[in-house]
Structures are given as structure tokens and as C-alpha cells.
């Protein structure tokens, strides 16, 4: 009995709930991201269908409203032949979608999802800085992928992507760091603890939240900024030459990026696990807080997805104009507002 108990403890404590594995693979990592993609894509299609006066997906599992449509799509992607054109640069062509997905998930390793010391994946002192820095890695591989594809549409899409990266990254970084200015701390645990009293940073500094929200839309080519893979002139942008599972990875990559950013927004601006105070114990100290953060992030994502049914897409120069001429001054103002609030002790 004791040995079985030990095996159970090892599996649960040291494998499933071992923070780096738990956060990278389970919640909010790969498995949760897949479930979230399943839900969000379904929600996106159903919400758009509601606005557009039609049914949306319902052929697969009509009783639950076509909720597992994505499973069917993924099966198709997985079983489809992967065609590698002769003109591509094979190694970067195959590797870049995979590396992109892994790097996109990496910021989740840096953020703490509870205030209990045992369950920190890394020491959280500079976790905000590290997470934001890690989030800037994966877009580079979209550019690499477009270059490796050696297709005109892909190259144009890659160039647009690189323009957009330079525009949104500064906004996202400054926006997130205005939270550090408000709390004088890069430690996400501190930032969440300050918000425990109900004073969410998103409420105290809505400008920063708005700027980050738009920057995330830009980075994940959500509407109205679906520019690098704008279908009506660039087919699928950087992903034009991809087929089968690799194309599926690319499509999933966008959603994973958006998910990771949403987790960061939930932690920094929306109070993290705020109404709930983690108590020692795996379930109460780790599972429940991480679930709360995930649900908040899911709501953020749902709002982002809904914009699809309201907006068309901006032209690339207009999007860059919005970023450089409006959002960056706005983010600086948010940073200043954060400093002022910290100085006058509002926080």
C-alpha cells in the first residue's frame, strides 16, 4: 500500500504538478491551450454565426452545437499529406512552425500562477520581465517561415509580419511594464497580491490595458489587424506553402500566442487569481488559482474573437500608423499615469 501511495505521490507531485511540467504541458500550457483553442474557435464561429444570422458549425455533434468541430478539423490536418514544394528551404521550412509553437508556449514557464512558494516554476522576482521578453521570440519564426517558403505571397506576408512585430512589441512591452511602474515590482506574485483588495490594475490604468489589448490583437493577427495573412490579396500570407499538419500548427500558433498573452493580461491587469487566496495543498494552492487565471484569460480571448464579426481589416500602413502615432504615445501616457498613481499612493 505504502509503495503504491508513494508511486501516486511521485506521479502527482513530481510529474503532473511539478511546476515546469504542469505549466508548460497542462494548465495553462499545451493541453489547456488545445482545449481553449477548441472552445475559442467554436465560440468565434458561433458568435459570428449569431451576428450573421446563420447556424455556424453543427454537422459534427449537432447535439452539443458542433462543439467538437475543431477535433474533426485537426484530424483532417493531421491525416493530410504534407506536400513540401521543391523550391523551399527544407530545414527551416519544417522546423520553424514547430519552434514557433514551442517558443510561443515558453512565457508560461516564467509566470507564477499561485502565491505559494512551492509551486513557482522559476523564482518569480523578475517574472514579468522574463515573460514579456520570451513572448517576443516566436514571431521571428513566422518571418523565417515566410522566407523559407520562397513564395511571393509568403514573402510579402512575412515583410508585413515583420513591420507589425516592430510596431506592436514596443506597445506590448511598455504596456505590461507600466504595471511594474505602478507596483515598483517585476514580481507577478507581488503584482497580483496588490490587486487582492479589488483594485485591479486594469481598472486603475485602463489606458495600458487598452494598449496591450490592441497590441495583442496585432501580434496574433486578429481582426481588425488580420494583415499578414490577409486572404483577399495574399492567399494565406506566410503560411501559403504549408499543408497538412504543419499548416495546422501555424493556425494553432496564432491561437497559442493569443492565449499566452491573455494569461499575462489576466495576471497583470485583471487581478490574476485575485478573489481567491491560495491555501497550501496541491488542489487549493495550485490547481484552483491556475484555473481562475485561465478562465479570466479565456474571457479576454473571447472578447478578442468577437471583434471578427464587427470589423474588417485595416491597411498595413494604417495599422502601423495606429501603432506608432496613437498607441505609443498612449502607452507612454499609461506609463506616466502608472508612475503618478504610484507616487500619490493610489495603489
Amino acid at each position: 500500500m505504502i509503495t503504491w501511495y508513494l508511486v501516486y505521490r511521485i506521479i502527482v507531485d513530481d510529474i503532473i504538478f511539478y511546476p515546469p511540467i504542469y505549466q508548460f504541458l497542462i494548465i495553462p500550457g499545451l493541453i489547456a491551450a488545445l482545449l481553449v483553442a477548441l472552445f475559442i474557435i467554436w465560440f468565434e464561429r458561433k458568435a459570428a454565426a449569431f451576428v450573421q444570422m446563420r447556424y455556424g458549425p453543427r454537422e459534427i455533434a449537432p447535439r452539443i452545437g458542433g462543439a467538437i468541430q475543431l477535433v474533426a478539423d485537426l484530424t483532417r490536418y493531421a491525416l493530410q499529406e504534407i506536400i513540401i514544394p521543391e523550391t523551399v528551404d527544407v530545414l527551416p521550412y519544417i522546423l520553424s512552425p514547430i519552434i514557433m509553437i514551442i517558443l510561443a508556449l515558453l512565457p508560461l514557464e516564467a509566470v507564477p500562477l499561485t502565491s505559494i512558494r512551492t509551486y513557482f516554476p522559476i523564482p518569480p522576482d523578475y517574472s514579468l520581465l522574463i515573460a514579456v521578453a520570451l513572448s517576443t521570440l516566436s514571431p521571428l519564426f513566422v518571418v523565417l517561415m515566410s522566407w523559407a517558403s520562397n513564395n511571393k505571397f509568403a514573402v510579402v506576408g512575412g515583410i508585413r509580419e515583420s513591420f507589425i512585430i516592430t510596431a506592436y512589441e514596443l506597445i506590448a512591452v511598455l504596456g505590461f511594464l507600466s504595471a511594474a511602474a505602478m507596483t515598483q515590482s517585476f514580481n507577478i506574485v507581488n503584482i497580483v497580491n496588490i490587486q487582492m483588495s479589488g483594485k485591479w490594475l486594469g481598472l486603475l490604468n485602463p489606458i495600458a490595458l487598452l494598449a496591450v489589448f490592441i497590441a495583442v490583437l496585432m501580434s496574433t493577427s486578429g481582426f481588425p489587424f488580420e494583415i499578414p495573412d490577409s486572404e483577399s490579396e495574399l492567399v494565406a500570407g506566410p503560411y501559403t506553402e504549408y499543408t497538412g499538419l504543419l499548416y495546422g500548427l501555424n493556425m494553432g500558433g496564432g491561437y497559442i500566442k493569443r492565449w499566452v498573452f491573455s494569461i499575462l493580461i489576466a495576471l497583470v491587469f485583471l487581478g490574476g487569481w485575485a478573489p481567491y487566496k491560495p491555501v497550501p495543498g496541491i488542489i487549493t494552492g495550485y490547481f484552483i488559482p491556475s484555473l481562475i487565471v485561465s478562465i479570466k484569460a479565456l474571457i479576454v480571448m473571447a472578447i478578442m474573437s468577437f471583434l471578427r464579426s464587427v470589423y474588417g481589416r485595416y491597411r498595413v500602413d494604417q495599422a502601423l500608423g495606429i501603432a506608432w502615432e496613437i498607441l505609443i504615445p498612449l502607452t507612454l501616457a499609461a506609463f506616466g499615469l502608472g508612475l503618478a498613481e504610484a507616487y500619490f499612493g493610489i495603489i
Binding site: 459570428a48 450573421q52 444570422m53 446563420r54 464579426s309 470589423y311 474588417g312
Partner: peptide
């Protein structure tokens, strides 16, 4: 026109 500009709602409304 709507779908060219990425506006799927107008596309569906007009066709409906």
C-alpha cells in the same frame, strides 16, 4: 466587397 475587406458579417448579411 465585404469579404474582400475581411468583413464577413456584411458578406453573410448581403447573401442572406
Amino acid at each position: 466587397f465585404g469579404v474582400f475587406l475581411g468583413h464577413s458579417t456584411l458578406y453573410m448579411w448581403a447573401f442572406g
